[in-house]
Design a protein around this nucleic acid. Structure first.
Lengths: 205, 205
DNA sequence: ATATTTTCAGAACGATTGTTCTTTAACTTG
DNA sequence: CAAGTTAAAGAACAATCGTTCTGAAAATAT
């Protein structure tokens, strides 16, 4: 009942590409170019996957894109969300979170902004599957922020925790968008600081 | 020195399309589909412009897209920015602004979100012209919000006015993105309310 | 060894892409 | 009316799109 003999080699010809590296390369290409602009030819070249294998593994361009988004969420977004803690004071945790957001969105000049907020959002306009995926990814981050906020004491007059979390998520996405336009980390840090300050003000009120 | 005889008919065969209506149709198609996914065929059909006229007037797809973005800024974003006033208390003006943002992003189910934040942002990944356009449009809104904020008294400890404006712009864009994922106006209103409340808290501190 | 299985490399597919060109239609001007 | 001018309609363009298919290559199993 082990399912697969992971240590044992498969029977046929071994694949000439490394699956995780291939997915990361596809992710970066989609991130840079957008879903429509990234062609199968480019993807096949960047991932070093033969086209046949690409269709075998992911069923097509849309499947590879969704897999890239999942890979992005696991390897890029999860660490950012992890910065929320709780591992210290609320202000510190939120600052660390936004710092990670800015680093993600500006870290590589070839991939400015966010794959989800800047690329998936575009294709979500008419594609129902992509729209559902976008909705789920957005909701997941908001839930994570909410979880951090409810671990905190709030005055009775403060806005709903979920609303505050959604606002913070909106700021994070606005920062990602601003990075897509070429904004530097130093220009984005004050935006994050203002958001943190305003939330701390509400908690102290 | 009048430039053009506006009342007088042009010399050759009259155009069979209405330029402003055509631009609005192109804008809506780009808004719904994205830049890459909207084809010249679709655009020509939606605008009722013959392809030859489309190339004559706008030089190509990119030119039509940039013209659509300008038309969008004038007809859709300008009224939203106008809601900022100043025409009343800060909280009222900001609420009116966000209400207009939500209405714009959710008003037509065929065009969820924002042409600039959800569509132009995608193509800005690799196209330098589009990226510069995005940067300029973002900066313009932030300047407009800053202008509203500086007309207000603030405590000395409050964040920089420009930073606050950029944060509010980020929230607005985050709301647009959330609308792209299918969020209803009722789900977005609390996000706006939280942003307004947090800024008012800072001013009262 | 042969058989079997899996992948690779690339040709091939029809469809569609953005763009240009050609011909015809519909006007104003002289 | 004829001449001149502008736009419409759509054919034509090479290029590229996403996808499928074919035959050879490289491994294990018997």
């Amino acid at each position: 009942m082990t399912g697969e003999d992971v240590g044992r080699r498969r029977k046929g010809r071994p694949r000439g590409f490394e699956p995780t590296a291939a997915l990361d390369a596809a992710m970066r290409l989609f991130w840079a170019e957008g879903f429509e602009a990234a062609s199968i030819d480019q993807l096949s070249r960047a991932t070093r996957m033969p086209r046949a294998s690409l269709y075998q593994e992911y069923g097509g361009k849309a499947g590879l894109f969704l897999a890239s988004v999942a890979h992005y969420a696991e390897t890029r977004i999860a660490p950012v969300a992890a910065a929320l803690g709780p591992s210290g004071a609320l202000g510190n945790d939120l600052s660390a979170f936004f710092q990670a957001v800015i680093a993600l969105a500006t870290g590589d000049a070839a991939t400015p902004g966010c794959l989800i907020s800047c690329v998936l959002a575009d294709s979500a306009g008419t594609n129902a599957v992509f729209r559902a995926e976008l909705d789920q990814r957005f909701a997941a981050l908001e839930a994570r922020i909410t979880a951090r906020l409810v671990a905190e004491p709030w005055p009775a007059a403060a806005p709903d925790r979920a609303a505050l979390a959604a606002m913070l998520a909106a700021v994070a996405r606005g920062i990602m968008l601003r990075a897509r336009s070429g904004a530097a980390p130093k220009a984005l840090a004050p935006v994050a600081d203002a958001a943190v300050a305003s939330v701390l003000c509400l908690r102290a009120a």
